[in-house]
Amino acid sequence: MATRTISPSRGPAKTSGRDRAERKLAFRMTAPSLVIMALVAAVPIGYAIWLSLNQYSVRTAGLSRFVGLENYINALASREWWAAFGQTFLFAGLSVTLELILGTAMALLLNLAFKGRAVLRTVVLLPYAIITVVSAITWQTMFQPNMGLVTNVLSTLGLPGGDVVWLGEHGYAMAVIVMADVWKTTPFAALIILAGLQVISAETYEAAELDGASKWQTFVNITLPLLRPAIVLAAIFRTMDALRVFDLPFVLTRGANGTESMSMLAYTQLRENRLVGEGSALSILTFLTVMVVSVIYVRFAGGNIRDVAKEEQ
């Protein structure tokens, strides 16, 4: 990915003796952190890959056999994996879209100059500071049939949804999980987008104003394009997180009603069933899925950043 070091637009590179020496020094300086990165990331993943190529007996302790790609083949041939795959992507698509829209709106508000802005910026982060399991239990209580806050309010006002068992129905259960995630992580998206807003120079806006651009034109033609890198970053972080979702469905539905995620499937095999090989294969598949998605993001959304830059030039 990030291996192209010399950009042709910068002209041919001249390497003097000093440059080479500096490069060597740079390598030596970064070596320790590269080694640590390898130990922290590569070793556990390598081990997980090894586990995923074996099966470990649940009947006889210590018995294992090498099965090659059998665990992967079985997983990819199973209905459960593809159901979990689809459900995870549905969840990620819905929640990340909502989080980016609401996050942008929230960032724009927080960027305005008003009294108490600093306090508000801290306060909006509160949902993000709450442990997911705790917020999941809160949402569960609110949507409880007969006694929950939401169901009670809806039926008192005579609105639809008051007599629905939200966590017990397809579609509704996913809606609650998406809501819980949006509520919790929109502030995180907003914070990243706010940082992006703050680096847009005031001169750009002044120029737009002089040209007689309306507020909407300014937003569409200046703010949004310049915000794109920040939005893409927020999208990458949130998508990767959302694709690994575990705690919300685990607490709210235990995977019932079309809410079982890829990570839940891996957890069930690894922890509940102690099928170490099969579970590791599912973890690796989840990992590969997340990785492919982030590469696609960087290729396409990252490419957008360049196009915008070119247009501007």
Binding site: M1, A2, M37, V40, A41, A42, P44, I45, Y47, A48, L51, Y56, S64, P229, V232, L233, I236, F237, M240, D241, R244, A266, L270, R271, V276, G279, S280, S283, I284, T286, F287, V290, M291, S294, V295, Y297, V298, G302
Partner: peptide, 20 residues
């Protein structure tokens, strides 16, 4: 962006292994 994305993906997925 690419580096951040990949490093995070690696780190976050690393905990899936389980004990032999």
């Amino acid at each position: 962006l690419a580096a951040t994305a990949i490093a995070t993906a690696l780190l976050l997925s690393a905990c899936g292994g389980g004990a032999a």
